[in-house]
Each structure stands twice: as structure tokens, then as C-alpha cells.
Design a protein around this nucleic acid. Sequence first.
DNA 1: TATGAATGAGTGTTCATTCAT
DNA 2: AATGAATGAACACTCATTCAT
Lengths: 238, 238, 238, 238
Amino acid sequence: MHRKNLNYRGGMNDRNMEKAKPRTRDSRVTKSLILAAAKSEFARLGLGGARVDVIANKACVNKRMIYHYFGSKEKLFQTVLEEAYLDIRSAEQELALDHLPPRDALETLVRFTWDYYLENPEFIRLVNSENLHRARHLEQSDRIRAASRRFVDMVRNLLDRGVADGVFRDGIDPVQLNITIAAIGYYYLTNRYTGAILFERDFMDKDALDQRLRFNIDTVMRLVERRPVPAGNPDDPA
Amino acid sequence: MHRKNLNYRGGMNDRNMEKAKPRTRDSRVTKSLILAAAKSEFARLGLGGARVDVIANKACVNKRMIYHYFGSKEKLFQTVLEEAYLDIRSAEQELALDHLPPRDALETLVRFTWDYYLENPEFIRLVNSENLHRARHLEQSDRIRAASRRFVDMVRNLLDRGVADGVFRDGIDPVQLNITIAAIGYYYLTNRYTGAILFERDFMDKDALDQRLRFNIDTVMRLVERRPVPAGNPDDPA
Amino acid sequence: MHRKNLNYRGGMNDRNMEKAKPRTRDSRVTKSLILAAAKSEFARLGLGGARVDVIANKACVNKRMIYHYFGSKEKLFQTVLEEAYLDIRSAEQELALDHLPPRDALETLVRFTWDYYLENPEFIRLVNSENLHRARHLEQSDRIRAASRRFVDMVRNLLDRGVADGVFRDGIDPVQLNITIAAIGYYYLTNRYTGAILFERDFMDKDALDQRLRFNIDTVMRLVERRPVPAGNPDDPA
Amino acid sequence: MHRKNLNYRGGMNDRNMEKAKPRTRDSRVTKSLILAAAKSEFARLGLGGARVDVIANKACVNKRMIYHYFGSKEKLFQTVLEEAYLDIRSAEQELALDHLPPRDALETLVRFTWDYYLENPEFIRLVNSENLHRARHLEQSDRIRAASRRFVDMVRNLLDRGVADGVFRDGIDPVQLNITIAAIGYYYLTNRYTGAILFERDFMDKDALDQRLRFNIDTVMRLVERRPVPAGNPDDPA
DNA sequence: TATGAATGAGTGTTCATTCAT
DNA sequence: AATGAATGAACACTCATTCAT
């Protein structure tokens, strides 16, 4: 009745102003309108915080449609999450890391991960929410599992090639590496709010972002590269 | 005034036995009971998801007491969060890193961070929640800022000593290092739910935990240590 | 003061048969049912004393509908109040005082005001409540201001005509007159409870009411009429 | 997460700083402190709106004392109200109207009533509240009844003397006159908030107040004075 | 006499979801 | 396919009042 955001409407509804009757009648459009609005709201406020009414309003559809197409708020969240994961996995595949030299491929992956998080802030917020809910929704999706398997294989292959080329050291677990690559970008971004207070700096400043990316690339390259063991190296049992 | 007797509850009624009323009448105890229950609930379900009634019940206090002592759910959350941060900062100080050789000190810090996260799972969940809320609550606390400054100084000092000893390379930003140390542990643990699905392994398995800690120590040590620059190193401008 | 009426169900209805759900599904009907119930409850108990639950029950609608249509208890009160004022202002216009001789018109107005207060006891109670709240709700309504202006004009015109006819004395402020006409009726009725105790008589007795109306008409006619100034008249400076 | 508490007092309960410990230990002082605070709060917010905590705080006494001395919020209200009525009745007696000529005495009474309302704004607000509650509290007080009887007698005597002196007309009911004298002042003041909006003027402006007092004196004097009946007088049956 | 701690029953308000068309 | 109306079960928060000392 009140408080609705006045300038929402945005997006692709250049049809009839005043919300009018000739609704889309195109179920595909309706569904994707809902998904876009839901992604934005779930990212902003989490599963519990997002409001079905607000999502319907932002999507310019009747609230009932959400239930028609998705069954429940929770199933809608699940769908949003699945799409978000499929998107990043698909983008990773497009990197075609197999066609790059190992070191370049690895740096490309670190850069891509960082850039993707930066450009798709909803993604990390959705993942955060999902982990607060102990991945209860992701569990259902087999498509995600398959896509992830392909992704791990890609990194494993990259590492193997690097070892064969003599530039990477042996024995690195591709899953641990993946986790670390994600962690050093993801944590910086999700925890930038508390970080700003704790470390008294602006995490989103252009220079700060550049500096962090360089630091992360450095961290990962040093982690994998094969090199003369210096005296007192922790790898050295002596 | 009358009608009371219909559902009389006074004195020593035989029900609600199980709620184990301590009826403390000691405000210090009451406050800390509330804080403990709140910490657990906020960690479990986040600020929005936690229920004031449940907190009161778990603390065995009347709900009204929460408002008496903390003013609102949100201020209660803020207090819980502040205490949680002060706890970890205080534990870090007790490590007395200044009395250890730099490399030992750094490894100790990585281990401690990991162990603390593992043993205080509420901490990372609280921090996660707070970041979902853009650190709106932490912002108020000056005690946190002061404690954090001391912490950063400690790490800076550690790095400086390492450089002086010739074991660490120069120019490492203690804040970036701190973030990375936190990230590689924190992310592994908070995202273990989605991780379990994506990577199809049990993140909390004893061996998995040990392996991750070793991996993290390795990552950090390689990141800071001074060593001969191998050919093709990205640091090398040539 | 609180918790008193547990099973209160509104007015003097004999419990209106288990809530008799009309399930109107007609928003206009629903809204006016809510307004009617709210008017009655706000009049009975004031803004603070009225209970949203009771209003919903009396209106046979779900409590949620009140928030759907009116936003908040306070906005509902505001709407009720606005409607009440518009009602009396509209009834006054229907008196068509301009078509009556001035003295008749004035007496008609006094009678009407009295009768309206008597027949619409909610009105004066609502106005009383609103004044307890310093007219914070009425302030918003421009429709009320416009209607009031028309009303004052009507009385001013009436006085002017009386002066022109030589029956009313000159210089009477129509606003002061209005206030007095309202006051002598309104005060008698709103303060009849304390009055009954102070003056030990039944203010609502048929004869008492008639007597008061006559007294009020007399007061107003004497106040306005032009007449030979008797010796020692206060108007007389001597 | 909504509805911020209005009387929140900041931090944890480190209040009662300035509230000092050397409590009075003088029951008379304590009681009158409570009464003064209660009068102010009940006048401001009504019986339902006033808060026992706030009253205790304003009185600088422990909340428990209110119950100790007055039994309940409602009985406290009753006491406040009774005192307020006794105060005005006692002030009226001090006017010694019996020693003034009838016309002067009447004008004095009108002036006094007006001034008293103006200088004791709590009085009219308390009376208003009590009438919202149908005088349920005043009912108990016999002292009020006695004082009122004396007051009515005073006015009756005044009228009788005026009739005897030939300056007042016969047959005026002292109670009706009292009600009117009160009404034209009281209504103006209690309804000044809605009045300000309806009539678009500042009711509390110095000039407006003076003008109203003159208007009221005029109204009352014209109402009572004996004078030649003009043609067409409504009293005239012809 | 005086007090801080504690409480039960409510208050306004919200929300995901279903009904009737 | 689409919609406006309607709902029940919470939820955060409040308040007059009593307990224990």
C-alpha cells in the first residue's frame, strides 16, 4: 500500500505504463522476470530477509505467479542459486584454460575468479546465504555437481600440465588450490564491511582492489611454483 | 483482578518443570545467560532468523529481561558481536608472538587462527551475519577498533622482525597478510556446506582438516619467505 | 487497565454467532466494515485504548486486512477522523441556512449542532481523542480545511444578513460564535460523566437534554441580537 | 526490529547516575513527588498513555513506591484527579464572590475560570481523560461532591442577589450557567488543536486569548442580564 | 522504608501462502 | 494464464505489577 519503491519498474517493461492488463502471457518472460528480481532481493537480504511481495513487485508480476511457477519462496531461492552456480561454472569453461600455458592459465583463473566476484556481487551473497542454511537448497541439484566436477578436472589438468612443464611443484591438491583461490578473493569481498572497520581502510577503493588482486596472484603463484628450497624451508624435514 | 483463578499459574505450579527456572536474581548471571543463549542462536540462524523467545527460553530468563538489559534484539546482537571480537583479539594477544622467532610466530598465528575458528564456530557465523548486514552493528564499537589496531601492529612487528632476520621478504602489507590468513581458514569453514556438494568431500573429516591446516601453513610460509627468484617469476620485470 | 477483557467481542451484540464470516471478497465492503468498526472502537476507547484485534473482529475481517487497506492503526484512526469531520461538514451544508431568515438560520444551526452531537456520540469522542493527540492526525487533511472554510463562510454570511436586517448586532466574529455554539453543546455532552457527579443530576435525562437545548439557544440568541443597551451594560464604557 | 522504544535510556543499565542514593525516607515528600510526576504524565498522555516507569523516574522514586503508597496506577490516577478538583474548588472559594456586587462577582467568576484553565492546563486534560473513562474514578470521591455542592450554592446565591438587585433576570439555573461558563473556556482550550486546523488561526496567541476572554464575559453577561425584551425575541411567544 | 530483579499477558505489525474469479 | 482479496501463525516489543532482599 505504501513504501513501494517508486522507480523499480526498471528493466525490460517498456510496454504499457500504468502496469495495465495485457500482461505478458509469455511464461518464459514471466519466469525470468521473477528470477531476476528474486536474485537481486535474495542477494540483498538473504533468504529470510527477502520479501515475496517485493520480489513480485520488482518483477512486475502478480505474487501468485511466483507460487505458480516456483511453488514456494524456498524453491525460488533454490532455483536462483542453481542458476547462479551454473552461470559461473559456464563462464569458467569459456576461459578455455586448456589452451593456455599452465602459468598463464592459473593466473587467468585467479583473475577471472576475482573479476567474477567483483562483477557479480549477488553471487557471493547468495553463496553466503546458502551456507548460513547449510547448503540445504543446493543439495538437490545434480546439475551443479556435474558442472563442478568438470571444473575440478580443468584445474587438475592445469596443474598436471604445469608439473610436466617443470614450472609447478608436484602433489598439489586441485581442490585445495581451488578453495584457496576462491577464499582469498571471496573473503576479501564478503568481509569487506567488518574489514573496513577492523583495518580502517576502504576495501572497495580502486587501488585497494588492484593491490589485492596482485597480492592474490602472487600468493597463488608462489604457492604452486617449483623452486629451489631455501634453507629452513618448512617443506624441509631437517 | 478476578478471573485470574481460571488459569492460575502462580507460585509452585507443577508444570513447566523442565524449564529449570534458576530465578537467579543476580543481574550479572542473568545478563551472561542471555548473552550465551543469544550467541548460540544468532550464530545458528543469523540476526533475522534468531527468535527472541527462543533466546529467552534457552537462557531460562523472562523475555522481558532481554529488553531490560539490552534494549532490543539488534542491540543484543551488537553486544554479542562485540564480545566475540574482543574474545578473539584477546586470545591473539595471549599468543605473545613477540617472544617467538618470526617464522614460528607466523606459523603459530596461522595455526591459532585455524584452531580458533574450529573451536569457536559461532564466531565465523556471527561475522558472516554481520557482513550480510554491512557491519552496521560493529560500526558503533570503538573498543573493537582499538583492539584491531593492536592486532595489526603485532603482525607488522612480526613481519619486520622476519625481514630483519633475513627470513621474510620485504614489502608485505600486514593487513593483506592478515586477510589472507583469515581467508584461507574462514572460507574453508564457512563454505564447507556448499563446498561439500561442489567438491564431493567431507570438509570436516579429521584428515581433511589436518590436510587443510598444512596446506594453509604452507601457503602462508611460501607467501612471505625470502628466496632466490626463479626464472620467469612474475615479480621479475624482465 | 490491561488484560481486563479477555473475551470481549465488541458492542452489545449477543456474541454474533461465531464471528459470522461474510468473506466478502469485495474490497469496498471490507474497507467500510473496517471503518465502521474502527469508528466505534476509537470512539469508545480512544486511539491508544482501542485494540486492532477487536476492530478486526467487529468488522468480521482478518486483522491483516486493516494493514492492507490502511497501513497502520494510526492511519486508520486518521481516516476515521477525516470521514467523521467530512460527514458533519456535509450535513451542515445541507441545512441550506442561506435560504432561511437570519434568526431562524442561527437557531437552526444551534439545534442542528446539538442534535448532531447527540445522535453521533462517536463524533465528539473522536474529536476529544484527537485533541488529546494535539490534532496530529487531522493536520494531514486538506479536505477538512477546505470544508471548514466553507462552513465559516456560511456563518459569516448568516451574521452579515442579520446585521443588514437589523436583527443582529455588528462586529461578531463568526469563528468565536462557532466556537461558542459548539462549546455549549459539546462540553455538556463530553463532560456529562464528571458533570453528573459534580452537579448530581442525570445529564442525559430527556428533560435535562431539552432544557439544555433551550438554554443554549437562548444563550446564542441573546449573544447576537441587537437591542437597546440597558443601563450598566458592560459594552457601555461609562 | 521495528517500533523503536520511546523511553529507552541508552546503554546497559548504568543509569541512576545522577539519581543519587540518599533517598528521602520522608513518606510525605515521596508521596507528593509521585503525585506531581503523575499529574504531569497523566495530563500529558492520559491514563492509558502514561507509563508507571516514567512517573517513577520523574518522581525520582522507586517504582515499587507507587504501589506501596497508591496501590495501583488507576488508584494513583484517581488520587491525582481528586486533588486537582479539590484545588480548583478551593481556589474558587477564595474568590469570596459573596462580598462582591453580583455583576462583578459573575465577571470575576468567568475570568477566574478562564485564567485557572489557562494556568493549569493539566486540569482540563485530566478532566478530559476522566470523561473518556466515564468518570469511573471520580465516582468514588465524596469530598468532591461536597465541594461541588458548596460551589453551586455560591453561584446560586450570586444569581439570587442579582435578581434581587434587579440586574439579573429571574429563573436562571445556576448549574446550566456554571456549565456554560466552563464550556466556553474549556472547549476553546481543549479543542484548540483541532480548532487551529479548522479555523486556521492560532488559538494561543496573546491577542486571541484576550479576545476570547472578552467574548466569553460578553456572552455570560448578556445571558443573565435583565433587559427590555426586543420585538421578535424568541422568549416572546407571539 | 526502600529497591533492583523478574514476569505474564498482551500489542501492533508482518509474512508466506491460499482462495475465488 | 493471471489476479486481487483474504488469512493464520508468528514476531519484536511493552507494561502494570509482584518477588526477594
